[in-house]
């Protein structure tokens, strides 16, 4: 296990601040009707950013749920560019270009866990030196896919890191109504694999946990279930009103444990961060997001793109439907 260097921690903080700034900006853009549903990242930054900073981007795959993209900056600027397309509802938002080893968002909860196990299994068959890191929430851990995938991963000894981001809430359902288990990490026992619980607001702790899990996997010792305990500081999404169910005193306490404030104060004490660094990072984040959004808005889209990429080539049925669609468009044009 290697702990992150101070320089790495600073890079992690940059990505965390970027993610929160951009998430806030997207929230406002959604309220203006410019983008679709947004799942705010507040409170998740240390867990997601530090986890991907423990990866080797050339070899390791990331299978996100849906809240992660703004925090996956380490995998390249294309992630933000594609996420802006996705947020606009452009189909190209689902196409993360080669050779970036990141899957698009997964809305069907938990279904990405079997995919990650399949990828990890496939990498061992191809003798590739990589792991698959899969993100899912405390709520997703109640899906059958979590159990089937965790069980198969254990049986196959697949190099997968299952990262359960326990933010205490599945929309309005609190963790005690999600499971009677003492922790989500404890569920690893049923798979015969190690389960570890970390403070997900501590970037260095998450980095260490994922780094260790990755090393185990690459050494042929199989999967690890990591539970990162955090608190969702914002709404589930722009369609949610958490004041209906989140106790204000709990939220207040969680805000005092904000992962960005923690890492900031740590790096400020080391002289690696200050208000100027914070302001410059936030400004850059806004600039990058606006540019990516402008580029996404300029991306062309033809009406018959609705039929593209269903199959490798159009079937007879799709050929007919494409002709009908284009003919209807020509009638409208006239």
């Amino acid at each position: 296990m290697t702990s992150p260097s101070n320089a790495q921690l600073r890079e992690i903080l940059v990505d965390m601040v970027m993610a929160r700034t951009q998430s806030g900006r997207l929230w406002n853009l959604q309220r203006q009707g410019q983008v679709g549903t947004v799942a705010p990242i507040d409170g998740h930054e240390a867990t997601i950013v530090a986890a991907v900073h423990a990866l080797e981007t050339e070899h390791d795959w990331v299978a996100p749920q849906y809240r992660e993209p703004l925090a996956l900056r380490r995998y390249g600027p294309e992630i933000l560019e594609r996420f802006m397309l996705y947020s606009l509802g452009h189909p190209a938002g689902g196409h993360i270009p080669e050779p970036i080893r990141v899957l698009p968002n997964q809305i069907s909860l938990g279904t990405q866990i079997p995919h990650a196990v399949g990828i990890a299994w496939g990498m061992t068959l191809r003798s590739e030196p990589g792991v698959a890191l899969v993100f899912f929430g405390d709520g997703s851990s109640s899906e059958g896919d979590f159990y089937e995938a965790g069980n198969l991963a254990g049986v196959l000894n697949a190099p997968v890191v299952m990262l359960c981001v326990n933010n205490q809430w599945a929309i309005s359902t609190p963790v005690h109504q999600q499971t009677a288990a003492e922790s989500f990490a404890a569920k690893a026992a049923g798979f015969g694999i190690p389960g570890i619980k970390v403070d997900g607001n501590d970037a260095a702790a998450v980095y260490d946990a994922v780094d260790e899990a990755r090393s185990r996997a690459l050494a042929g010792k199989g999967p690890t279930l990591v539970e990162a305990v955090i608190y969702r500081l914002g709404a589930h999404t722009t369609a949610d009103d958490p004041t209906r169910y989140v106790p204000p005193e709990d939220l207040e306490a969680a805000r005092r444990n904000d992962p960005i404030l923690r890492l900031r104060s740590q790096l400020e004490e080391l002289g690696l961060w200050d208000d100027d660094a914070q302001a410059a990072t936030e400004a850059e984040a806004m600039d990058l997001l606006d540019k990516a959004l402008d580029a996404a808005k300029a991306m062309p889209l033809s009406p018959d793109a609705v039929l593209d990429h269903c199959f490798s080539a159009d079937t007879q049925r799709l050929e007919r439907q494409r002709a009908d669609l284009l003919e209807a468009g020509q009638r409208e044009d006239r």
Partner: peptide, 28 residues
């Protein structure tokens, strides 16, 4: 045993793992 694999009784992960295997470049 690498290429012909008995799985647990788990139809969802049999189907789901094929997605990952295909992404990893295999032909499940």
């Amino acid at each position: 045993e690498q290429r012909v694999v008995d799985t647990p009784i788990s139809e969802a992960v049999i189907a789901g793992a094929t997605v990952g295997l295909a992404i990893a470049g295999l032909v499940p």
